[in-house]
């Protein structure tokens, strides 16, 4: 049987395996196709997430998982999906990303590859130690760890100071008080064991969310036989992306439920009214940033009024 190598940088037990790799592997071997997915987890085919896209283009691996946010300059239009308020409370991130893709607005950001899945993580939340965030005033002057430039702008709009640091340092930094808070999706709380040092979480303010891609080397895809291509096509796009996004949300819900029952931990779920003062500061950024990257049309489609 023919092998497809899949490289990522998280442990095998990460949500990625059940939500993306397993459905992909099942589809790849369906019908008359005998494609097998060979997984290289934990950065075995090269250290760190920064070069993931490049690894797919150069053929180090056939398929890679990555985050546009790590190399945001390449994905300025795709990254619009990460901005506050783009995905409505009941919306689906993968739908708005594929709407933009189908309209031909994202293709230029994915040269030499075929995207198999594009999706959004659960909403970003505040993760804090020994302080509770209920109003925008509570955020003012705090040092908050962010991962990218758009997230940094969101933090600045709330009057806080964005701090850049590697993800592996968040744990120590929150413990020693080097940073006051982290803004990221709640699944990161489990990935980086942040619940051991944090004790308060604020959900509800519109602070955007992280996006993900799974892409395949285009030459490799094109060289597949008809049956193999058809097998991959049966899951490629919205189907696989939906599975991914649902997997992420399920993991996030599970973590939040766990935190709620944890002693000494506060989970603050702001109502729409309580979140409104935050949103009044963060959401106007979305139009401004979309304008800056010449992506008003992308934003319009993602919001469903294109």
């Amino acid at each position: 049987a023919e092998d497809i190598s899949f490289a990522h940088f998280v442990p095998p037990q990460h949500t990625l395996t059940s939500a993306v790799i397993e459905p992909l592997a099942e589809a790849a071997g369906s019908g008359e196709s005998e494609l097998e997915i060979k997984v290289y987890p934990g950065g075995e085919l090269g250290a760190g997430p920064l070069e993931q896209y490049v690894r797919a283009v150069q053929g180090v691996a056939d398929v890679v998982w990555g985050l546009p946010g790590y190399t945001s300059s390449q994905f300025s239009k795709t990254m619009i999906s990460e901005l506050p308020g783009v995905r409505g409370p009941d919306g689906h991130g993968y739908e708005l990303l594929w709407d933009a893709w189908d309209a031909g607005l994202l293709e230029r950001e994915f040269p030499a590859t075929v995207p198999l899945a594009l999706w959004l993580a659960e909403p970003n939340v505040f993760i804090t130690k020994d302080r509770e965030i209920r109003t925008p005033e509570d955020v003012e002057g705090l040092k908050i760890r962010v991962s990218g430039s758009a997230a940094a702008r969101v933090i600045e709009s709330l009057g806080a100071t964005p701090v850049q640091m590697p993800a592996t340092e968040m744990y120590n930094a929150l413990q020693t008080g080097l940073i006051d808070a982290i803004v990221t999706g709640s699944s990161a709380i489990g990935d980086f064991k942040l619940d051991e040092v944090a004790n308060s979480y604020t959900l509800g303010p519109s602070m955007g969310q992280i996006s993900f891609y799974v892409v395949m080397n285009k030459a490799r895809y094109d060289a597949l036989g008809e049956a193999e291509k058809a097998a991959l096509d049966s899951v490629r796009g919205r189907t696989l992306s939906q599975s991914a996004e649902e997997g992420w949300f399920a993991r996030a819900d599970q973590i939040i439920e766990g935190l709620k029952s944890k002693e000494g931990t506060t989970v603050i779920e702001l109502s729409a009214e309580e979140a409104a003062p935050f949103n009044a500061l963060t959401e106007p950024l979305t139009d401004a940033i979309a304008e800056e990257v010449d992506g008003a049309d992308v934003l319009a489609i993602m919001r469903g009024d294109g």
Binding site: Y53, V54, V57, S72, S73, Q74, P111, S147, A152
Partner: peptide, 12 residues
């Protein structure tokens, strides 16, 4: 050359 094609630059 690939970095130029992908418009890669540092994040901030």
């Amino acid at each position: 050359a690939l970095s130029r094609m992908l418009n890669l630059s540092t994040n901030i």
